[in-house]
Design a protein around this nucleic acid. Structure first.
Lengths: 219, 219
DNA sequence: ACAAATCGGTTGTTTTTACAACAAAAAGGA
DNA sequence: TCCTTTTTGTTGTAAAAACAACCGATTTGT
């Protein structure tokens, strides 16, 4: 687990906490490590979650498949980001989505209750982690609101524009890479892949953007 | 402000805090009170928010209007609920939506920084409010995820089913009232009102539900 | 290197939704 | 109460999206 201290140090959750402190906090917070192969389920819809899941290597998707096999992707977790913040309240622990490793992945799990309850042994930085968590959850909420902003657009084209412009803004560059292939992007925006592909090409022909694979450039 | 202590006491934010303590916390948390007439803007998109807004009377909608006048409703704030939790992180304070009073409303504002920073004078229940806020944000997060669940459905009918069943579940009754009229519900689900109205009537004719105004019953 | 699987784009058809216009019913105000 | 405004349902048409099927290119595994 110690080999990932460098990764943890750079997460928002542990912002301002030094290596030595992280190391001692691992036990204080009941940390455990787990690895998953590409395609494996990290968590399943309906499961009860009592941990905060921090991704230290790989790539996760939060998604849901309906009865007819339609998939919708709620979001993506990149290295350093975490999952499970929505299930910290004691009563609301039944997961609404699956969490799937889209690449070989490694996560570190922290016991939720140990995070929100400041420990008696009072490791110095516990209070800072609590405050960091506030900001992390707050950020997460904002991202969900942004996603709702994309989804509330009526046409496929508008959804694409909404999503791509925000991605450009987030990466602070008109050229940027998205973490999805076409099918995944369609599942993320809840539209049909072929229709979306069509629309992307039209937008390209209209001179609004250029793309190659998952690399885009807004014009 | 003191006339609303009874309301505050029943909010999740102040769960477990007694009247006297709330009263003293009001100044500790830099509380201010504001009232709005029906139709007035409480907050506007792009504004910078440094407060948590608790609704103590009335009804608020969180919404956004685009250039062409299309409105989309992100959510509704009922008495006792709060707004602003997505903007607690110092860098993310630019509002993504308007907040509008859909009835005459009264809110109490709390300085965010005073909430997350435990005060030196250490009012006894401050720590409890901090923990409560964790749960509130977490709940909000869950609600956003649920809304994304509805929005990710491909057809108007499925969106309606998704929303209405959840509402029934939330109110723990097959008969329930929704906080929207038809146009508002359409704006909430991002569909056309007339098409939605049509679909609702078809669903009624198919024997799936009954409704009268904003009172629904699932069969 | 080869076969198999995945991925992205294209096209035609069907289904669904948006849009516009209107009428009946209900609510609100003078 | 009566008039005005708002709300809801209805219908027809136009536009858009979903669906299905296919192909070529790329990637992956052996």
């Amino acid at each position: 687990m110690n080999k990932y201290i460098g990764v943890l140090k750079r997460t928002q959750m542990f912002a301002g906490v030094i290596d030595d402190e992280i190391s001692s906090m691992l036990s204080c917070l009941g940390a455990r490590i787990k690895s998953y192969k590409k395609g494996e389920y990290v968590l399943r819809q309906g499961e009860h979650l009592r941990d905060i899941v921090v991704l230290v290597d790989g790539n996760l998707h939060i998604q849901k498949d309906d009865y007819w096999g339609n998939r919708s992707i709620l979001g993506q977790i990149a290295v350093g980001e975490l999952f499970g913040e929505a299930y910290m309240a004691p009563e609301s622990s039944a997961l609404l989505n699956d969490v799937v490793a889209v690449e070989d992945s490694t996560v570190i799990l922290f016991d939720v209750r140990r995070i929100i309850t400041t420990c008696p042994s009072a490791c110095r930085f516990h209070a800072m982690v609590v405050q960091n968590m506030f900001f992390v959850i707050s950020e997460k909420n904002k991202r969900l609101v942004q996603k709702l902003g994309h989804m509330s657009k009526r046409s496929t084209r508008e959804k694409l524009i909404s999503y791509l412009s925000e991605e450009a803004k987030k990466q602070n560059n008109a050229s940027f890479t998205i973490p999805f292939n076409r099918q995944q992007l369609a599942d993320f925006l809840s539209v049909d892949r072929s229709a979306m592909s069509n629309e992307l090409c039209k937008m390209r022909d209209d001179g609004h953007l250029e793309f190659d694979k998952n690399q885009f450039k807004l014009l």
